[in-house]
Design a protein around this nucleic acid. Sequence first.
DNA 1: CGCGCGATTGAGTAATTTCAAATCTAGTGG
DNA 2: CCACTAGATTTGAAATTACTCAATCGCGCG
Lengths: 189, 189
Amino acid sequence: MNLQEIFKDLTLSEHNKMMISSKLKKIMVTKGETILHPNDTAYYQYYVVQGCLRSFFTDKTAKEHTIQFAITDWWISDYTAFFRKEKAILQIECIQDATLLRLSRDDMNEIFDKIPNIERYFRIKTESYIGSFQKRIIGDLSKTAKEQYIDFVNTYPNIEQLVKNYHIASYLGITSESLSRVRKEIARN
Amino acid sequence: MNLQEIFKDLTLSEHNKMMISSKLKKIMVTKGETILHPNDTAYYQYYVVQGCLRSFFTDKTAKEHTIQFAITDWWISDYTAFFRKEKAILQIECIQDATLLRLSRDDMNEIFDKIPNIERYFRIKTESYIGSFQKRIIGDLSKTAKEQYIDFVNTYPNIEQLVKNYHIASYLGITSESLSRVRKEIARN
DNA sequence: CGCGCGATTGAGTAATTTCAAATCTAGTGG
DNA sequence: CCACTAGATTTGAAATTACTCAATCGCGCG
């Protein structure tokens, strides 16, 4: 894997590339596999080279709520747990066979100490997540199920094709029956 | 204002303190004032020295949805717009007379270039926001109005006392009538 | 005292869920 | 290549939850 594909606009010395590479462990996971369980310590975040995963929360009525999908070039973790060193409350599951690069929090911090540009890269990425989260909260608060679905399809067309409808429903905060009815109504027009 | 109160664990040289201070503009706002309107360019983020503000989104049915409250020692902005240099979609309104420190994006970046520790401070702060947002999304997706309200009161007891119930309702994604009924039910037990 | 904002209450309504059953579909083994 | 099966989606009807709209109440302040 080529580091430049991950850290697109950064110029990295060969030495630094080696250092980073040595800390990114390549992992292969197959569909259905779970790479993080609730209550685990979330040591790692994962860069998706290929494939598709999702993180989700299981509530006390055993209903699943998808927090994040991740496809090629996305990072995924239980970020609350990863950043704050708390126990994971999310589960991360592989939806489509995947190749990942695993990075531990400690290694990440070591990289930050040595390569400020990488700390900046992650700062900007984290800032950008804030934007996505804010937009999602606005959607959750102000949009009907139908509008939410239309937004999702427009925003993540690649993901829409990869995942099951019940995954999308659990991301949008509706039941899969409701999503089915929404889709039916959209198709009619 | 003492910079150490903002950047608690950081050791800053006098020179750096001066540099940062010169970029933090003290602003006084009174209850009811709006410091950011939808469609404005979100040049600034604001540190709350004293007082209370909220950011909110007004949807197409003119309903308001509170995204964030901010009290002493919190930062507030339309972060999607601020970070991504997009037009603001949120409005920021003063709920209780406030003293703020205003920091522009450009000045912030200049500080980051000169003082890596400050960039780190904001990186970690941003990471922590991710955690809050994630928890909020989980709440929105999985909790009833009553549970959401109880969580809010427990998580932000200081804010609960400062703001109107309809502010809280608009944060929780319910109507103020629903919140009133929830509160009534809680009081009964 | 009375105005005005905010909170509460009630009744009817709309949206979504629940639960159960039917249908569709992709992949597997014969 | 077809039949079968398990998983996924769809459908229907009843129940639930929260909303809307209108009216009333409560209280602080001029």
